[in-house]
Nucleic acid binder design. Structure first.
Lengths: 153, 153
DNA sequence: ATTTAGCCTATGGTTTTAGTAGACTGATTG
DNA sequence: CAATCAGTCTACTAAAACCATAGGCTAAAT
């Protein structure tokens, strides 16, 4: 399960993606708009900044904004920053491999064999989905919803 | 990341699958063989028993054994018992759905749209992989390893 | 110089994880 | 029947992770 931190972070990124090229957004506004504790959000955005996803401007007219186009930021990148590696076990992680403590031979570990597939399936989706993709999917879903609504009326 | 509890549990299940129809296995033996703290393993096996994956016999000649054929026990079943739902967010869980706290409209939530795909991909693998499958894959991997070894000699 | 708004450090509460201890119960066997 | 064996139950603890909150510091704009 994703932590609240990660969910907050993803919500913030989607919000910022929608406001892309509209200049810096205040933490306070973002927090209020998305119902996220302001101080907690500060820490999250800072982490995303320190990892190159966001940029910030201090002082009046300041705020946070995406470091690059929504087309170039993926869910995978963001989740790894906030939640850690995607891999269910460290020994199948591409981005931060580590030997499993007392897991005899790596090649013949049943857990590893299965989890390798799981990691790959997750990575394929999360590294293949950009913020721009998500905005598009949200818009599509909203259109569908509107259709349902009209149908009901 | 899988918890140690889950890894221990999976290891135990694979071990018991290999010993299937060889009668009950002692917790103590399993713990020693797989390097798992005995008391911790006790609790794990009990949970797996209470959820219908394992059965046990008390007294002399007792121990634990699979409740049914390794072909009928999947990784998905076991992981859900020890780790909880596969879904990254509760609102896409098939086995224990729950509304996400303050996630406005479910249909148009960007996080949900993506995580629905992730859950499906994971479930497809984990619910499609039985203990019997894993044993087979391990054997295959061991054959390959032996080949590598012979080649080196 | 003052205000604005992000940055940094510290702290606290709650929950989960990992593990331990010890008494209890049910089954077997001599 | 009693001794022994082996799983079951209750309780507890230490450490880590998670979810925040408080308050002062620093950089930028006017």
């Amino acid at each position: 399960m994703l932590s609240k931190k990660t969910k907050y972070g993803l919500k913030a990124l989607i919000y910022l993606a929608r406001q892309y090229d509209k200049g810096p957004i205040l933490i306070a506004d973002l927090a209020q708009e998305e119902n996220i504790p302001k101080k907690f959000l500060e820490a999250i955005l800072l982490a995303l900044k320190n990892n190159g996803i966001l940029q910030s401007k201090k002082g009046k007219g300041g705020g946070y904004y995406l470091a690059r186009s929504p087309k170039l930021i993926t869910f995978g990148q963001a989740i790894r920053i906030m939640e850690g590696p995607l891999a269910p076990v460290p020994c199948v992680s591409e981005t931060s491999y580590a030997k499993c403590t007392e897991c005899g031979s790596e090649e013949t570990c049943g857990i590893r064999i299965v989890m390798k597939d799981v990691r790959e399936a997750m990575a394929k989706i999360l590294d293949g989905t950009t913020l721009a993709d998500v905005l598009e999917e949200i818009d599509k879903a909203e259109e569908t919803q509107k259709g349902v609504l009209n149908f009901c009326i």
